[in-house]
């Protein structure tokens, strides 16, 4: 088995997520408690855990807590990819970023994004069943709208000002898009509207120390493995450049010969993208006690 981990981004969080793991899994609980200490917030309090303002740190803590549990039981991964926020979870898992430092970094990143979003309110929409190249070309003709996430061959998310995202819709449909689905977010991540957040994050990253990752983490932005030297630049650019998750998945298979992926963190978005991009990949996800047990049973890991 050639295993890669996929680390969830935002968008699939659910209320009370991870509480069953917290109650029953010692490693998981210890990791969440560590996060609570690093952030000085009570993460056992549902009003804190489910607070939209905390969602980025919560997903990081949850994803890494599951990783810690699984990594003692599964073979070492040959590579990892996270989507957007998920890159921080992947970098922590690889040892490139310290967990406590990453939590504070992600907390600040979400504040920079919220501030930039207030300065330049934006909108995201998923464009379905139109060639990503065509979506890119059409965006080039419109001021204020950009490709934000190249998710699969059939799904590209565009982002920009509310007016521009609305204005481009008829063109996308005329070009053959099956549907344009607005996403419920107020911040146009991965577009130039995040310029001020990107700059603030770059400055903030100067204060951090990084270590060489134990396994390659493929960047959404460059589609190359993160390096210690380029880490601040790549993570800052990530906020203003599109993510290339489809390319990341293809690279996992082509360059790293991955045949099995396990998504860590809330939801199944990345497993579904993986299935669509590489149908013969074996996909799992872990975000509950039940799904953890399924993966442990399926991959026949030794019990603790």
């Amino acid at each position: 088995m050639k295993l890669a981990y996929l680390f969830s981004g935002q968008g699939s969080q659910f209320a009370q997520m991870g509480m069953d793991l917290y109650r029953t899994n010692a490693t998981y609980r210890a990791t969440i408690d560590e996060a609570a200490t690093a952030l000085q917030v009570d993460l056992t309090e549902p009003t804190v855990w489910d607070d939209p303002a905390q969602v980025q740190v919560v997903i990081l803590a949850m994803s890494y807590a599951i990783y810690r549990q699984l990594t003692t039981q599964l073979p070492a991964p040959v590579a990892a990819v996270g989507l957007s926020l998920g890159e921080y979870s992947a970098l922590v898992a690889s040892g490139a970023l310290d967990f406590a430092a990453a939590l504070r970094l992600v907390r600040d990143r979400s504040q920079y994004m919220a501030t930039a979003g207030k300065q330049h309110p934006g909108k995201l929409a998923a464009v379905l069943k139109l060639n990503p190249q065509r979506v890119t070309e059409l965006c080039e003709d419109y001021a204020g709208v950009y490709p934000a996430n190249y998710n699969t061959a059939r799904q590209t998310v565009i982002g920009g000002t509310s007016e521009a995202v609305t204005a481009i819709q008829p063109q996308l449909l005329a070009a053959g898009a099956k549907r344009v689905v607005p996403l419920a977010v107020a911040v146009a991540s991965h577009t130039p509207l995040m310029e001020s957040a990107s700059k603030a994050l770059f400055k903030r990253l100067q204060a951090e120390r990084f270590a060489a990752p134990a396994f390659p983490v493929i960047s959404n932005t460059t589609n190359r493995p993160f390096t210690v030297e380029q880490l601040p630049t790549t993570l800052a650019n990530q906020l203003v450049k599109p993510t290339h998750f489809q390319q990341n998945l293809l690279q996992l298979v082509q360059n790293y010969h991955v045949d099995t992926v396990v998504e860590l963190g809330p939801g199944t978005t990345l497993s579904k993208f993986a299935k669509q991009t590489v149908p013969n990949l074996v996909t799992y996800h872990v975000d509950t006690v039940e799904t953890l047990q399924q993966v442990q049973a399926a991959l026949q890991v030794r019990s603790e």
Partner: peptide, 14 residues
């Protein structure tokens, strides 16, 4: 129904 089951089950292995 069978068709829907097949399509949904193909979306993920979950």
């Amino acid at each position: 129904l069978t068709k829907i089951q097949e399509i949904v089950a193909n979306q993920t292995d979950d």
